[in-house]
Amino acid sequence: MEHIARNTDVDSLREIARQLRIDALKMIHLAGGGHPGGSLSAADLIVSLYFRVMNIRPGEPDWPDRDRFVLSKGHGCPILYATLARLGYFDRAHLDTLRKLGSILQGHPDMKRTPGLDTTTGSLGQGLSIGLGMALMGKLSARPYRVFVMLGCGELDEGQVWEAAMCAAKYKTNNLLAIIDYNQLQLDGTNDEIMPLEPLDDKWRSFGWNAIRIDGHDFEAILEAYAQAAAHEQGPTVIIAKTVKGKGVSFMEDQLDWHGRAPSDKQLESALRELEV
């Protein structure tokens, strides 16, 4: 199985993210369905976590002390699957089976099928609660792990997210980090058109969270934010990472259309031309 060294520098992270974007697009193309926009927007944040920040053992996916990752915006799973495969959780050949009958890679994440997945997600709004439960158990058992939950911005419309936010503040779960992939587009339109979210950091702060705003494609800023979050001991932290939906492929960037459809042969070809420079 192919492995890539972890604890990598910023240039290597950028290079891994470029390669995994290619993997994700090829997977979605072959599957004939999936969500390219949100996979590409989340890529740099996820790569930074898995290849630099998280304490994990790909050869031992059930290691009790591992850091957990919850992809609450489960539809972004192609980029996560590509990440897990690259780390050696499973053979990369599985990537070609995405969404196919019998595959270990379901249309949305199934923890019982895919080695390396910590949770089953895909129904928006539930992931922060799941991560909270994990964080509470980490405190209870005095295990040193941290829990990273990635939410979509449209997902913040769900009331349950704010139930979980209140509860995490109550229990001061400083081992819980929420990351918002803030690409400002949801399925039917922009956040502003469908359900305005601003002032978003004020909302989180008023719920008792430490809030950090960054550019979600600036690797130095991402790593700095993760470090700041780790140093914040009083309670949970949220990173509001401004991203671009479809990032890396010019004709997909900021396009509502690319939320949930597969590229054609031709479109894949032009996307790869841009990414394979």
């Binding site: 949770t119 539930q126 439960g133």
Partner: peptide
């Protein structure tokens, strides 16, 4: 859902 998260940790 929090209980689900707890159960994934062996509780």
């Amino acid at each position: 859902a929090a209980a689900a998260g707890a159960a994934t940790c062996g509780n």
